[in-house]
Amino acid sequence: MTDILKDYFEALERLKMGNPVNVPKGTKITNDSVSLEAGRKKGSIKKSRPIFSDLIQVIDAASKVEAKPRDEIRERLGEAKAEATRYRALWEEALAREVSLVKQLWDEREAWAKEQAALTGGKVASIRKTGQV
């Protein structure tokens, strides 16, 4: 294996392990990202060059393997969003019950105040004098 290919394969391994040196962490594995990680120009890995055929096959296999965890992350994200939506619905239902109970209590207090005012006539003075026990 030539030194050039060795650099590309080492760059691919760094990308697989998630420890790139020349590209941002989490960069998708492509021919261009491998060439940039190897310190070469973008597009230096070409399908038309027979020397790169094995490298391109390995890069394609690595990108397919890399795509699976991303799908798993998206599935977990979808599940988390569904669970958050469910909990939000439960929370809103609980709030609706609480508001209903507060409204009912308010109505009962108003009705009680009206009954009390009707019984006392609103003109009754207290018999107790202040300061005497």
Rank of each mutant, 00 (worst) to 15 (best):
A117T: 03
Q132W: 14
V23Q: 00
Y87I: 05
D60L: 15
L12I: 11
D54C: 06
G122C: 04
A125S: 10
L77W: 11
D32L: 06
F52L: 01
Y8N: 04
V124D: 07
K46M: 05
T27N: 07
L55P: 01
Y87G: 00
P50H: 01
K129F: 14
K68H: 15
E93N: 07
L105M: 09
D71E: 15
T130Y: 05
W106P: 00
E108Y: 07
R49D: 09
D32W: 00
T2I: 10
A117Q: 09
A113V: 04
E13I: 05
E10W: 01
S44M: 08
G131F: 05
E66P: 02
T30N: 08
E79G: 02
E92F: 02
R70K: 15
G18W: 08
Y87S: 02
E83R: 14
G43A: 01
V99T: 08
K123L: 13
A113W: 03
E83D: 13
G18R: 05
V34T: 07
A89F: 02
R14C: 08
S100M: 15
T130L: 13
K42Q: 10
N31Q: 14
D71Y: 13
G78A: 15
R74A: 15
A61Q: 12
G26R: 11
Q104L: 12
L119F: 02
K25H: 07
M1C: 04
L55A: 09
K41R: 13
S63C: 12
A82R: 09
Q132E: 04
E108L: 06
L90K: 10
K25V: 14
S48D: 10
E37I: 06
V99L: 12
R40L: 10
K28W: 13
D3G: 10
E92V: 00
G18H: 08
E10L: 04
K64V: 15
A125C: 00
R14I: 09
K123S: 11
R40G: 07
E10P: 00
N19W: 03
K81G: 01
L119H: 03
K28D: 14
R128H: 05
S63K: 10
L101D: 15
A80E: 09
I73L: 14
K129A: 07
G121T: 11
F9S: 03
D60G: 06
L12T: 03
E72A: 14
D71M: 15
K6R: 15
P24E: 10
S63N: 12
L77S: 15
V99W: 04
E98K: 10
L36G: 00
E115A: 11
I59W: 00
T2P: 13
M17E: 13
I73Q: 13
V124Q: 10
L15R: 06
V133L: 15
S63L: 12
I45H: 08
A61P: 01
T30W: 09
K41Q: 06
E110L: 02
D107S: 07
R74W: 09
I59F: 02
K64T: 11
